[in-house]
Amino acid sequence: MNSKLLVAIVAAVLVALPFLGIGPYPLHLVIVILIWSFAYTGWSVMGRFGLVSLGHGAFMAVGGYVTALLWNEVGLTPWIGIPVAMACAAGLAVLIGYPCFRFRIIGHYFALVTLALSEVVRQIIIATRDTTGGSLGYTPERFGDGWSIVAFQSDDRMMFYYVALFFWMVGLVIWRLVDRSMSRYALEAIWEDEDAAAAVGVQVTKEKLKVTVLSAVMTAFAGAMYCQYQMFISPDTIGGVGISLQIVFAVVVGGIYSMLGPTIGAVITILLAEVLRIWIGTEAICLTDKICFNAAGVPLLVYGIMLILFIIFLPKGVVGAVIDKWQGRGKRAEQS
């Protein structure tokens, strides 16, 4: 199979997608999937080395809120606001990451410390409700009708589609660069055995910190992009424990250890939620006047079961399982 040809065909389809007569709603779904894919890819950059963070909701919220607050309060364009937000996320990542790595907080202790981080950021947003709107959410001011480069806003979905597509590809390129770098070997060695890695000269804290900052910055950027596209953010839609878990789980479903895993995870989880929502609806279905079922909860229910099944039966995710199967077949063909 000519993989280069396949990539070229997929790329061509993606670029031509808005012209293929796709409706506004499917296009919206594709954009949302691309933005989340970028965030998930950002998480998996560190998650694939056993650094399971449950704090990425915090970085995403920082990305969205700092950008929107600077635009509304100071009038600073997102072109400056987004880098500032990313710098803030990097700072936060160092603040939490350095002591964690220095003092060897790993495994589920690391997961729980980062969980506290996402809760801190959510509570701060709620506590400063006079400025941020608290749990009611926050809306960046509209620039006006049409599109504006300065405001990084657009009425036109198609423009945003290309922006999201571009950055999604940048995300994949970053993943690839990390995959090909020396840091990858260092981080895999650290994951296997920290002491052994340190003994052969791997700078444990530095390597971990580098990948954590990269991951945080990417997630913050996704948060900012989400904010500019949806024009509405709230602590529960881009932050908090719920989003942190959502990020981890989508990646687990898609595949932590493969480049397209996070993207496939985003496609599966977002489409699943949408299909179930449209198919079952959000109305209450009443059998009698006492016994009612609220269909709005079904996606969450299915999502939960799916995750458990995935972790038990397909811990490498959909993409990982497919790759394993494919390679296994190749090997068997070689042997015979």
Binding site: V52, L245, V248, F249, V252, N294, A296, G297, V298, P299, L300, L301, V302, Y303, G304, I305, M306, L307, I308, F310, I311, I312
Partner: peptide
Amino acid sequence: LATGGLLFFFQGLAM
């Protein structure tokens, strides 16, 4: 993470 899946399952169930 598996118990995290249960978290979503229980929430969905209650909903």
